[in-house]
C-alpha cells in the first residue's frame, strides 16, 4: 500500500487578473505553496473562508487545472505520469452543487453508469447490476433510475453524485463543500452517508469546507487555509481545543455565531495577526 494516498508538494496556482488594456495585470496567488499529506484511510478537513483558494486546490488535485508550480502525488504516483483514466479509478470528486454536477439531459441510470462505459468495464447486464448495487449502497431508491436530475431533490442528487464517484471503486474522494448547497436537514444525512461509506469501504477523504462546524465530527486532521496558504494544521483535537493561529480562532468563533451571514468576528486586525506570525 502506498505510504500516502494523497501528497501535495509546494503546490501553487497563480492567476493573472487583467485590469483593462493599459494597466499591468495583477498577480493573484490563489494557491501559494501548499504541501499536504493524507495517509490511506485518513480524513483531512481543509477549512477556510470563501475565496481562499480551496476549490482551486481541488481542481489541481483532480487534474482540471494545471499547477503553476509543485506536484500532486496520488497513491505515491505523480499525477500526469499516468493517464486520466487510470487516475480517475483512484480518485474521484464530489462537487458542491448537485444541481450543476448532473447532466440535466441524462437519466440517473445513464449518469451513474457513464464511468463504467468510459472505462469499458463489464457488459450491459453487469453494468446495470453494478448501478443497482451502488444505489443500494448510497441509499438511492432504484425507481429513480429512469428519472432525470430535475425530478430529484438536492439530497437525492448528491446521492447520485456519490454513486457516480464510487462506482469505479476509487480509494480517495475529494469532496469540495459537498453539503453547502443543501438544506440543513439534508446536510446531516449526506455527511452521515459519507462517514458510513468511509467505514465500509476504507476511503480516504479530502473534505473541503468553509465551515469548521461541518468538519468537526468527520475528520481526523484539519488544515486551515487562508489566502492560498496553510496557516495551521493539526489533529482534530489540536485545532478544536487548542487553536494557535488567530485565523483559526476566528473561524472557530464564527462557528458559534448564530447566523452564517454574520461572518467572521473582526479579530483579523493587524496587531493580532502580527503577534501570531
Amino acid at each position: 500500500m502506498a505510504e500516502y494516498a494523497l501528497e501535495l508538494t509546494n503546490l501553487s496556482r497563480h492567476f493573472h487578473l487583467k485590469n483593462g488594456a493599459f494597466k499591468e495585470p495583477t498577480l493573484l496567488k490563489a494557491v501559494d505553496g501548499i504541501s499536504l499529506r493524507i495517509r490511506p484511510g485518513e480524513t483531512l478537513g481543509l477549512v477556510g473562508e470563501s475565496g481562499c483558494g480551496k476549490s482551486t486546490l481541488a481542481k489541481m488535485i483532480l487534474g482540471l487545472l494545471e499547477p503553476t508550480d509543485g506536484d500532486v502525488l496520488i497513491n505515491d504516483k505523480m499525477r500526469g505520469a499516468s493517464s486520466r483514466l487510470s487516475m480517475s479509478r483512484q480518485l474521484q470528486p464530489i462537487f458542491q452543487d448537485p444541481y450543476s454536477s448532473l447532466n440535466p439531459r441524462k437519466t440517473i441510470e445513464q449518469i451513474i453508469r457513464l464511468p463504467l462505459q468510459l472505462h469499458k468495464i463489464g457488459d450491459a447486464n453487469s453494468q446495470q447490476r453494478a448501478v443497482k448495487d451502488i444505489c443500494d449502497l448510497v441509499g438511492l431508491p432504484e425507481r429513480l433510475l429512469k428519472n432525470y436530475p430535475g425530478q430529484l431533490s438536492g439530497g437525492q442528487r448528491q446521492r447520485v453524485a456519490i454513486a457516480r464517484a464510487l462506482i469505479l471503486k476509487p480509494n480517495i474522494l475529494v469532496c469540495d463543500e459537498p453539503t453547502s448547497a443543501l438544506d440543513v436537514s439534508v446536510q446531516a444525512q449526506i455527511l452521515n452517508l459519507l462517514m458510513d461509506l468511509k467505514k465500509e469501504l476504507g476511503l480516504t477523504y479530502l473534505f473541503i469546507s468553509h465551515n469548521l462546524g461541518v468538519v468537526e465530527h468527520l475528520v481526523d486532521r484539519v488544515a486551515v487555509m487562508y489566502r492560498g496558504k496553510i496557516v495551521e494544521q493539526g489533529t482534530r483535537e489540536d485545532i478544536f481545543q487548542n487553536a494557535q493561529h488567530p485565523y483559526t480562532q476566528a473561524l472557530l468563533s464564527s462557528v458559534l455565531t448564530p447566523e452564517p451571514a454574520l461572518g467572521l468576528p473582526d479579530v483579523l486586525d493587524s496587531s493580532a495577526w502580527n503577534q501570531a506570525s
Partner: peptide, 22 residues
C-alpha cells in the same frame, strides 16, 4: 464550467465525447 462537464473530464472522457454527448 458546469460541474457535470468537470466530472466527465475527471472520468477521462474525450473532448469529443464531452462536446457531443454532454
Amino acid at each position: 464550467d458546469a460541474e457535470f462537464i468537470a466530472s466527465a473530464k475527471v472520468l477521462g472522457a474525450s473532448t469529443t465525447y464531452i462536446l457531443v454527448r454532454e
